[in-house]
Computed example of a mutant assay.
Amino acid sequence: MRLSRPFPHTGTAEVTVVVPCYNYGRYLPEVVQSVLSQERVDPRVIIVDDASPDGSLEVARVLAAADSRITVVSHTRNQGHIATYNDGLARVETEYVALLSADDLLAPGALGRAADLMKAHPQVGLVYGMPLEFSTEQGLPCTDDSGRLASWTIWSGREWLRWTCRRGRCFILSPEVVMRTEAMRKVGPYNTGLPHSGDLEYWVRTAAGWDVGRVNGPAQAFYRVHGNNMHLTTFDTIQVDLKERLAAFNVLATAELQQQLPGADLFHRQARRGICREALLLAERNLDAGGAIDLSLSLLDVAQSACAEAAETLRGRSVAYRLQRARRGEAPASIQGLIEGFRRQLDRVRWTAWRKVGIS
């Protein structure tokens, strides 16, 4: 990992932003404006409507009629979000590309900052940054990034994978990603079998062949939080999230990645151990907070599916001890509250590290 000071590229970068849309027509004008108002780039927009019944297609066509930089693709039947991603990405012809959900927004200057980094580092295939959450009711967060000191973090693909696999998690939310189109073409389409963790698997495949960069400092995107978010409606339990992460990291065991990435087996084992540790830690924390026994048991099952020896580890035995206390109806011990306080402090340290350099 190396940090460097950013510097602007010369010329104008061409960037296409693919906007998949299903029943989000009410958000389309705002998301399109966030793209077309980007400075120092030549932006294009491809809206792919996945047979929305809410009039999204009509909204998209009105926008396209007013601006030639907008292209509209319509599905006659609903194909699902992964197929919609792939349809839009296959139509990109510019040097750089981003995939932005219709309910999210780009931050001002985000595309130019990402293009600067990739112009300066030709081996970087993927750039991400800091996304900020917002809601329709509360509006965008009040941020003034005009004077914020920015930096770049650059990893070799192997180095970024090492961090990602050791933690067994994804450091990228998604709307802040900009890719080199050449990299996107070589990586190929999204995996239709991973509706929840397709992004993580895609970043793993990208890092297997390309370096990874991050724009630190200014926000790169705004992620809208509302009741219709897929992770809140379809995948609403942490156990499911952990299982889907396991499925995403299984790409490291495929023949393609084994051939492309020396040591892919080791990365795969690290990822499984990382998910095992997190599942056991969550099982501990749930019991320390007086949570339901069934939840910790299901998390223990996830840990054992990731690592057969999970129950025999120090943390696995710690979970077993807490389960015994909980089954006897005993309240969490006072030391457990002290441990949880330390964990919260560690959470804050990791969150700060992620905000600063993109990993934690």
Rank of each mutant, 00 (worst) to 15 (best):
R205N: 09
Y223D: 01
P195R: 08
T233K: 06
L232A: 01
R269T: 04
L257N: 04
E201I: 08
W210E: 03
H231M: 05
T192L: 14
V212M: 15
L200F: 05
A264K: 10
G227T: 02
T233A: 06
A208T: 10
R269Q: 13
Q220R: 00
Q270Y: 07
P262W: 09
Y202M: 10
Q239N: 13
H226E: 08
L194H: 03
Y202H: 15
F235D: 02
Q258W: 08
V204F: 10
Q258A: 15
T192W: 04
G198M: 04
L200W: 03
A248G: 12
R245G: 01
G263W: 06
L266H: 11
F222S: 04
N229A: 05
G263H: 04
L242S: 04
R245T: 01
G213Y: 00
T192P: 10
N229M: 01
Q239R: 03
A255Q: 12
V240T: 15
P218T: 05
M230Q: 06
Q259P: 01
L252D: 00
R224D: 06
T237A: 11
Q270H: 07
I238V: 15
Q220C: 04
A255S: 13
Q239G: 07
K243A: 07
Y223M: 02
H196W: 10
V251Q: 07
G227L: 01
A255I: 11
A264V: 14
R245H: 05
L266Q: 12
A221K: 00
L242H: 01
L252I: 11
G263L: 11
A247R: 15
G209H: 11
A255T: 13
W210C: 04
Q239I: 00
E244S: 12
A253S: 12
N229E: 02
V212Y: 09
N229Y: 03
D236C: 07
K243N: 11
G209S: 14
T206H: 11
R245C: 02
A264L: 11
A219N: 02
D199H: 09
N216A: 08
F267E: 07
R272L: 14
T237S: 12
K243C: 04
Q239Y: 03
G193F: 08
Q260S: 13
D241L: 08
H231G: 01
F222N: 03
Q270G: 01
N216H: 08
Q258K: 15
P195K: 08
D236A: 12
